[in-house]
Nucleic acid binder design. Structure first.
Lengths: 112, 112
DNA sequence: ATAACATCTTACCTATTGGTAATATATTAT
DNA sequence: ATAATATATTACCAATAGGTAAGATGTTAT
C-alpha cells in the first residue's frame, strides 16, 4: 500500500543528520561527500556515507560520479510527493478547527 | 533554536502507530483510549497508552477527562506549524527543478 | 465498602539504530 | 607500478525504542 512509502520516508527523516544533509542540498544544490562531511565536524566521513546510502536507498537523493567524487543531488519530489498529501489532512483539520473558533466567537458576539 | 521542535516532531512522527493514532483523530475527531486501542488488535492497551503519552508530551494531542475515560483530540496546528514551513523548502526546490526542465525543453525546441 | 472498569506507570526484554574504526574499491597523480 | 585521494563497506558497540506483563491509580456501579 501507499503507507509503505510514508513509513520509510518518515523513518529516514527521523534522523537530524539526514535531514540536515537534505537541507544542505536544498540550499546549495549538488554537493560531493567531502563537502557534505565538512558540515559535520563531529562525525566521521564513513558515518556520513552511511547516511547517504540510506538517503539513496529511499530515493531522496541521487548520486552521480565525477572522477573520484560522488555528486549528490536532492530529489525534492520524493519528499514532497509523499509528505504534502500526508500533511494536507492536518492542514484541513487545523483550518476546520480555526473555523470552529470563528463560529464560537460569532455566537458569543450575538450572545443568546 | 527552532530545530529543537523539528527534531522532536520528526522523531514522534517516525513511528507508524503514532502516525495512525493521529490519522484516526484527524478522521474521526476526539476518541478515548479504548476506541483508539480497538484499532490496534495486535497491540496491548498499555502500549497505546505509552504512545499517547509521547504524543501528549510533544503537544500533538490533548487529553480531557470524561468520567473514567480520557478523550484525546488532535492538535493539528502542532503538526502543521512545524512541518509546513519545513516542507516549503522542498516544495520550492521541486518547483525550481520543474522550471529547469521547462527551460531545457524550450531550448531544445528552438534547437541551436 | 467493594467490585469492576479505564487508563497510566513501571520493570523488563529484544531489536534497531547511529556511531566508530578498519578495510576495500575506484580513480587520479607521480 | 605505486602512491594518494575519495568514497563505500564491514564488523563491532552502546544507546534507544517499541513491545509486553504486572501493578498502581482514579472513577463509577453495586
Amino acid at each position: 500500500m501507499r503507507a509503505e512509502k510514508t513509513d520509510t520516508l518518515f523513518k529516514v527523516l527521523a534522523d537530524p543528520t539526514r535531514r540536515q544533509i537534505l537541507d544542505l542540498l536544498a540550499a546549495n544544490g549538488p554537493l560531493n561527500v567531502s563537502q557534505l562531511a565538512a558540515e559535520f565536524p563531529d562525525l566521521v566521513t564513513s558515518g556520513i556515507s552511511k547516511h547517504l546510502m540510506g538517503l539513496r536507498a529511499t530515493g531522496l537523493v541521487h548520486a552521480a560520479r565525477d572522477g573520484r567524487q560522488q555528486i549528490y543531488s536532492l530529489n525534492a519530489k520524493a519528499v514532497t510527493g509523499t509528505l504534502t498529501p500526508w500533511l494536507s489532512k492536518y492542514e484541513r483539520y487545523a483550518e476546520a478547527a480555526l473555523e470552529r473558533l470563528r463560529q464560537a466567537a460569532e455566537e458569543d458576539e450575538t450572545e443568546e
